[in-house]
């Protein structure tokens, strides 16, 4: 017997997919509020550009490339799952996880360097925003990698293949958030 979330569809959208979109909607408000607060403070304080000058654009760009590429593997996994190819879907999810882990490792080195140079979360409001926004995003990447591992394990056995699309939706959203964080924190100097 398949779970209710896969079969029930009062809105015309499978309940599991609808639930992920609800999650994404709530995340829009969380990240949207944070980014809107950052933008209004940034516009009001020209001096923040001097602080932003210390962030490394190339590291940010590399991580953007990593996330965009991991989104590609996630959506290719979705395609494979639609074709009923659980093995390939799992393989694509493992590539996506590799992207997520690479992102986090790069972030760890970046933050270590910044903290060693004296830029901590309490240095000033710019760095508070920087660590809060990037840190919250990194936690979402970590959560995505963990859930993706669980989904990949079942997909490999050709079970619950619809979940591949669901974790993909979440992952693409995390990618979209970074697409906006990148210019805000690394380019606007």
């Amino acid at each position: 017997m398949r779970p209710v979330a896969n079969t029930r569809s009062a809105t015309g959208i499978p309940t599991a997919r609808l639930a992920v979109w609800w999650l994404i909607a709530s995340e829009i408000v969380i990240f949207g509020g944070l980014l809107a607060s950052y933008i209004m403070h940034r516009l009001a304080h020209d001096a923040w550009s001097q602080q932003a000058a210390y962030t490394n654009t190339w590291i940010g760009a590399f991580n953007t490339l990593v996330l965009l590429s991991s989104s590609l593997s996630a959506v290719l996994g979705h395609k494979a799952a639609d074709e009923g190819n659980g093995q390939k879907a799992a393989k694509m999810l493992y590539f996506t996880m590799l992207g997520g882990v690479t992102f986090l490792v790069v972030k760890a080195f970046e933050w270590t360097s910044e903290i060693q140079h004296g830029f901590t979360i309490t240095s000033n409001t710019f760095w508070s925003f920087y660590y809060s926004a990037a840190g919250l995003h990194a936690m979402h990447v970590l959560a995505g990698v963990i859930v993706m591992g669980i989904v990949a394990a079942t997909a490999k056995k050709n079970e619950e293949l619809h979940r591949v699309e669901l974790i993909g939706l979440y992952w693409h959203f995390v990618d979209v958030v970074w697409i906006f964080l990148f210019p805000l924190l690394y380019i606007a100097k």
Binding site: G12, I13, L18, W22, G32, M40
Partner: peptide, 24 residues
């Protein structure tokens, strides 16, 4: 997806703009 989803997302974005306009 069904229209419900784009409307849901658009509503959240609208609330974000409302927040910005109110607090900025």
């Amino acid at each position: 997806t069904r229209r419900f989803v784009p409307y849901l997302v658009a509503t959240c974005l609208l609330f974000m703009l409302l927040f910005f306009a109110g607090v900025a």
